[in-house]
Amino acid sequence: MAKYKVVFLGPEDDNLEYEKAEMSDLDVEFVKANPRSEGEAMEVVKDADAILNRAGWGSEQFIKSTKNCKVLAVYSHGFNHVDAEAATEHGMMITNGAGMCAEEVSNQAVAFTLALNRQVVQYTLQLRDGGKWNGGEFSPIEPLDEQTLGIIGFGNIGRQIARKLGAWRMNTLVYDPYCPPWLIKEYGVEQVWELNDIFKKSDYVIAIVPLNPETYHMIGKEQFDHMKESAYFINVCRGSVVDEKDLIEALNNKKFRGAGLDVFEQEPADPNNPLFSMPNVIVAPHIAGQSTRSAWLSRRRASQQVAAVLRGQRPSALQNPAVTSKLELLSSMPANEPKL
Rank of each mutant, 00 (worst) to 15 (best):
M1V: 10
Y4K: 06
Y4D: 00
V6A: 12
V6W: 03
P11Q: 08
P11E: 11
N15Q: 13
L16T: 07
Y18D: 09
A21G: 09
D25S: 13
V28I: 14
K32C: 10
K32G: 03
A33F: 00
R36S: 10
S37F: 10
G39I: 10
G39N: 13
A41I: 00
A48T: 00
D49I: 00
I51F: 05
L52M: 12
L52S: 06
L52A: 11
N53Y: 08
A55L: 13
A55E: 12
G58V: 03
E60K: 13
Q61S: 15
T66C: 10
K67C: 01
N68T: 11
V74E: 06
H77Y: 12
F79M: 12
A84H: 12
A84W: 01
I94R: 04
A98W: 04
G99Y: 00
E104P: 04
N107I: 00
A109L: 04
V110S: 02
F112T: 03
L114A: 09
L114Y: 12
N117L: 06
R118M: 11
Q119N: 15
V120E: 07
V120I: 15
V121K: 06
Q126D: 11
Q126G: 04
D129P: 02
D129M: 02
N134L: 05
N134W: 06
P140T: 05
P143F: 07
Q147D: 04
I151C: 11
F154H: 13
G158E: 08
R159N: 00
K164H: 08
L165G: 07
L165S: 05
G166R: 09
T172Q: 05
L173N: 07
C179W: 01
C179F: 01
P180D: 08
P181F: 02
L183K: 14
L183C: 01
E186S: 07
E186M: 09
V189S: 10
L195E: 09
L195H: 04
D197T: 14
F199M: 11
K200N: 09
K201D: 10
D203L: 01
A207L: 15
P210Y: 08
P210G: 09
P213R: 01
T215P: 06
H217F: 08
M218K: 10
I219C: 09
I219Y: 01
I219T: 06
G220V: 02
Q223N: 13
M227L: 03
M227K: 02
A231K: 01
I234L: 12
N235T: 08
V236E: 05
R238E: 00
R238N: 01
D243Y: 13
D243N: 15
D246H: 12
L247P: 04
L247A: 09
I248Q: 12
L251Q: 02
R257I: 01
G260L: 06
L261G: 00
D270T: 04
P271H: 08
P274G: 05
F276W: 06
S277F: 13
P279E: 15
V283N: 14
A284C: 12
I287P: 07
A288S: 14
R293V: 13
S294V: 01
R300P: 00
R301F: 10
S303W: 04
S303L: 07
V306L: 05
V306G: 02
A308R: 02
R311N: 12
Q313Y: 15
L318A: 13
P321W: 11
V323S: 08
V323A: 09
K326R: 15
L327M: 14
S332M: 10
K339S: 05
L340Q: 08
